[in-house]
Nucleic acid binder design. Structure first.
Lengths: 213, 213
DNA sequence: CATCAACTGTACCCACGGTAGGGTTTTGGA
DNA sequence: TCCAAAACCCTACCGTGGGTACAGTTGATG
């Protein structure tokens, strides 16, 4: 990584931590640069203004998150051919990963931005919506595949169920922070897992082959 | 209501709307007073500083929320003697109430504070933790009562299940805001309801009388 | 008529976002 | 080794807005 990108990355990491703890509006550029060890001019060399910083932070955050999801649920697929089992494994791996975070989950930038939306321009808000939709779709395709071979115990809208994953995650992060108990988030992921299990694993599996053929 | 309390209430209402939309750090006192129609001195007559404003806002918000929960789930108890049915009715009423909000749920102050925690003093953070614990307990006692006469289909920690309600709610609010779809929050409440149903309504009910001896 | 709550008015300090523009060092390639 | 571009630093400045300080005013109430 070139020196420029290194500094940029350092700024983004510091800014993310501060924004998650204090909110975007209360995160001062001066604080960021003093921690990053550079001057105001140095900062504005990398980012035109605070909104561009927000955009870059979000993109960094979303990319990192996408990668984690892809890895954990990809691993689930490696470990089982049944889409339901693969998904359940992915959820368990996610819960374990979250439980292993030393200081708990640092917070969700999307949620942080959402509670300060009037501070940002249209583009930033569109990034948040697009990212959440991408995550929802990620879970939706998996859940639809599951529903095809495991009839749900109750009629349920798969799109809403996919959204539930995002809701549980963001809600769990908030509860963990408010109650200062990092364990809540992984527990909630496991509860979602239990719901998925009750919905799809309670009924006898329909072999995909029968559907396909 | 005396004139003083009226002004105070007006300030709190305006501040809440602004804080939920822009965050606490970005909510300017000047904006509040210009909308409330009073001067800076008038504002500081009512609140020593911004932190005291935050405390008052939270207390107001929590009280209002407590009342709504008590009403809806109290109505559920009126409509059914079975604790499970009463709870399911309460959840449905809650979902309907949320769906009827003209512009969707305005946001959760607890979540807003949580993402700006470093801006607040210890007392404010303790209010948030205490309130959330109270809500969790509210749901926990109901769920424990349910579990006593309806054995759960899967082993589940009732305290975690109670927390799930708070997670779903706060997560649903965030998703509704980010995706600009007010319908998501009530849908998620109904999904939680579906989970509770699958957990407790799938197994034959045990008559409380048998347990009581 | 006195008192107190509920303000207004004025003046000020400082932090912070952001601008402007010239100067300096570091780095990578010809 | 040299040169140009990248990656900064330095200084000075402006406007907004949170927050302080404190004296003065108004209106209801006993």
């Amino acid at each position: 990584m070139s020196k420029g990108r290194e500094t940029r990355e350092r700024i983004l990491a510091i800014a993310e931590e501060s924004v998650l703890a204090k909110g975007f509006g209360a995160t001062s550029i001066e604080e960021i640069i003093s921690e990053a060890g550079l001057t105001k001019s140095g900062f504005f060399y990398h980012f035109r203004d605070k909104n561009e910083l927000a955009r870059a932070m979000l993109e960094r955050y979303v990319t990192a998150n996408d990668k984690v999801f892809a890895e954990l649920f990809g691993r689930g697929c490696e470990l089982s051919d049944d889409p339901l089992q693969a998904f359940l494994i992915g959820l368990k791996l996610l819960a374990e990963t979250l439980a292993d975070l030393p200081n708990g989950h640092p917070g969700c930038l999307i949620a942080s931005v959402c509670y300060q939306e009037r501070l940002f321009d249209r583009e930033v808000r569109e990034i948040t919506a697009r990212s959440v939709n991408a995550w929802n779709l990620f879970f939706q395709v998996r859940l639809e595949e599951i529903a095809q071979c495991h009839p749900p115990a109750e009629p349920v809208d798969i799109a809403h169920l996919a959204q539930m994953m995002s809701c549980i995650t963001d809600g769990g992060i908030i509860m963990s922070k408010v109650l200062r108990d990092p364990g809540i988030l992984p527990q909630q992921v496991l509860l979602f897992r239990s719901y998925v299990k009750l919905l799809f694993a309670g009924t006898p599996a329909v072999r995909p082959a029968l559907l396909a053929g």
